[in-house]
C-alpha cells in the first residue's frame, strides 16, 4: 500500500507492506540516525517524533503514519546541536548507538519540562537504554543542556 506522510518537513510517498513498522519505513527511506536495539519495545533506540511526540518507531505501524508528520534527528540538527555538544563534553555519548533515540526523547523533555529535576529527567528518559555510560554522564549533560537553554543558548 502507499503511504503519504511528511518526513522532516518534506512530503514523502512510499510503498509499505501492511505489517511494516515506521522504523522499517524510515530505514528504507534512507534515514540513518534511527537504530533498532530490540524487538520488544524495550530500548528506545528507535525513538522519533510523530506529530511532535516521541514514539518508538519500531512499534508504530507504518500505515498508521499516513498523513502525519514524522521527525527524526536528521530533521532537528540545529535544535539538537547544543545537546549533542553537552553529551560530547562529558564523553557520555560513548559508542553513540543509543544517542539518536536519547536525543530525540531528551529534546521532547526539554520542550515539555525545561526545568526538569534529575529525578524527572530519569523518569522521562527511563525508556532509553544505554549500556556504555552508566547514565550519570548523560544526566550531567542533560542537566547542563537544560540550564544552558534556560539561559537563552541554543535557540535557533
Amino acid at each position: 500500500m502507499t503511504v503519504e506522510l511528511t518526513l522532516n518537513g518534506r512530503p514523502v510517498r512510499a510503498q509499505v507492506e501492511a505489517d511494516d513498522s515506521l522504523y522499517t519505513l524510515l530505514r528504507a527511506l534512507g534515514v540513518r540516525s534511527v537504530k533498532c536495539g530490540c524487538e520488544t519495545s524495550s530500548c528506545g533506540l528507535c525513538t522519533v517524533h510523530l506529530d511532535g511526540q516521541p514514539v518508538l518507531s519500531c512499534s508504530v505501524p507504518a500505515p498508521r503514519c499516513a498523513g502525519r508528520a514524522v521527525t527524526t534527528l536528521e530533521g532537528l540538527q540545529s535544535e539538537a546541536r547544543l545537546l549533542g555538544e553537552c553529551l560530547a563534553d562529558e564523553g557520555a555519548e560513548q559508542c553513540g548507538f543509543c544517542a539518536s533515540g536519547l536525543i530525540m526523547n531528551a529534546l521532547a523533555l526539554a520542550r515539555e519540562n525545561p526545568s526538569a529535576t534529575d529525578e524527572e529527567i530519569d523518569a522521562y528518559l527511563a525508556g532509553n537504554l544505554c549500556r556504555c555510560s552508566g547514565y550519570v554522564g548523560q544526566r550531567r549533560a542533560i542537566r547542563r543542556y537544560l540550564s544552558r537553554i534556560a539561559s537563552g543558548e541554543g535557540r535557533a
Binding site: 528506545g44 516521541p54 514514539v55 518508538l56 512499534s59 526523547n105 523518569a123 527511563a126 525508556g127
Partner: peptide
C-alpha cells in the same frame, strides 16, 4: 502507569 517501560512506550 509510570513504571511501564518508558514515556515513548506509554505514548502509544
Amino acid at each position: 502507569l509510570s513504571p511501564i517501560v518508558g514515556t515513548q512506550f506509554r505514548r502509544t
